[in-house]
Amino acid sequence: MDWMAWTLPTALFFGFIGMLLVGMTIWELRSPCIERKGLLPIATTRGDRLFIGLLGSAYLHLLVVGATDWSVWIASVLSLFWLFAVMRWG
């Protein structure tokens, strides 16, 4: 595993993603989700919205890092809001 060059932040990051996936699976098993149409132009399931939210967050981070001098944490906080909004109303 040494060659993978793990660091604490990336380990936490993948842990977070893994937990999200496990959580979503349990949630889906407990109460299966029905496809619905929200603010997004297409009908989505819970998993679709999570994917859209994560992809959007990734691009938001790139935008903040590439185009501004702000700390990356600002992007992370904004992403959390975005993720929540997409999950709730998307």
Binding site: W3, M4, A5, W6, P9, T10, F13, F14
Partner: peptide, 21 residues
């Protein structure tokens, strides 16, 4: 995962690497 790990570090060799965010 390895690519993600590499992308946040400055790597010189196996044992010498620094976190650079």
């Amino acid at each position: 995962m390895t690519v993600v790990n590499y992308s946040v570090q400055d790597i010189f060799d196996h044992s010498t690497r620094y976190f650079v965010g």
